[in-house]
Design a protein around this nucleic acid. Sequence first.
DNA 1: GAAGATACGGAGGCAGCCTCCGCTTAACAA
DNA 2: TTGTTAAGCGGAGGCTGCCTCCGTATCTTC
Lengths: 218, 218
Amino acid sequence: MIYIAGMDDHTDQIRKPRADAVRNRERVLEAAKAVFSAGGPEASLEAIAKRAGVGIGTLYRHFPTREDLFEAVYRREVEQLSELAEQLKNAKDPVDALRRWLRSGVEFVATKKGMVAALALAVQSGSELHAFSFERLTKAIGSLLDRAAAAGAMRADISPEDLLRAFFGMCYMHDQPGWQSSVLRMLDVFVDGLRVQPAANVKTRAAKPVKPAVKRKR
Amino acid sequence: MIYIAGMDDHTDQIRKPRADAVRNRERVLEAAKAVFSAGGPEASLEAIAKRAGVGIGTLYRHFPTREDLFEAVYRREVEQLSELAEQLKNAKDPVDALRRWLRSGVEFVATKKGMVAALALAVQSGSELHAFSFERLTKAIGSLLDRAAAAGAMRADISPEDLLRAFFGMCYMHDQPGWQSSVLRMLDVFVDGLRVQPAANVKTRAAKPVKPAVKRKR
DNA sequence: GAAGATACGGAGGCAGCCTCCGCTTAACAA
DNA sequence: TTGTTAAGCGGAGGCTGCCTCCGTATCTTC
């Protein structure tokens, strides 16, 4: 068993976790990250164990199920996105902050092709990982959303869950050619839809100084 | 080989396809539809063969890969959605027609939990199925979109591909509690974002209209 | 250094994937 | 009808990956 702080707050002594166990766990995580990123969610766990230089038994002891392994691997990644939201909370324009978070999310996803597929698979099966990351990101994005809604810049009836869902879904379609610019465009549309329209934004298309809401990519 | 009209237009004789082959193919499709719907994309092909009452070899002869089987199963389903778009082209309000198509899509998806996961998996791997359904639905939705854009009711820089991608993505997150109403809400937001804002919709909430400059990707 | 807890690793059982090939059956010609 | 033959059938078998189990090795603690 891996030591967990606070797990056993009654009197029993608690052994320090074994050094080799800690080391091996780390190695497996490292290997899993690489293999999942490259090979997607179907990657062989035995291959991961081999790459980590441990026996398959060791891998299973640390991560009894495939999903457990996902969870551990992605936890850090999710944290990163979450922290970004924290930073953006200080931006001046709350709507823009939201937009920027979403855009960063796209880039983030872009660097982890196989991993996203794996994540998506986990989400499907309602695993622990989903619960964690969804909640974590929901909370992160919620603060951005609240701020924007409180400022009256954005409709207030869309929940963080909704938004996250939509975002995730859009990204899921990645790995088609041009998916990235497509998602970016979609997000712009989406944020436009969320925004409580300020007067400046309301021009019929004929009017000339229309701000270029979206730059076409292709 | 299954007979395909026009496959062999030079002089050779062409045998009629064997009745048992046709029958078995149909049985396998039937079984696959049921099994995939229930069990998702991971379902055992052997289970499908058994349910269809044929040998595993027969299944593989007709559908050499898992994806081939998906393709055949979903083709009809895709056709249905596609036809719906055709009908909606005659609605009065083009934006509303689009909205309704999307909403029907959600319902459609809702009845086929496992199947959508299977489809999504296929999309991931860039299979034939994806090419077919994406193109088919793109064309279908394109007509709706064009009509709305031509009427000046909708921004014109969003392609059918974009829209389909976003829609599919949103639906992909299904099987969480409440996903359906969430997706419906998201779609409303989305369609609102697409709509070229009519003056009536414009309430000035903020004295100073924020200039929502879209930041380019860093 | 000894004792005992903890972790290691891989053999082995199981399940699903896919191929291969001898047997069966339907289509066609006579 | 009947015979011929291409087309189709099915499942045994080889392979790979999943996961468990347990004898052995290693670490922590005293």
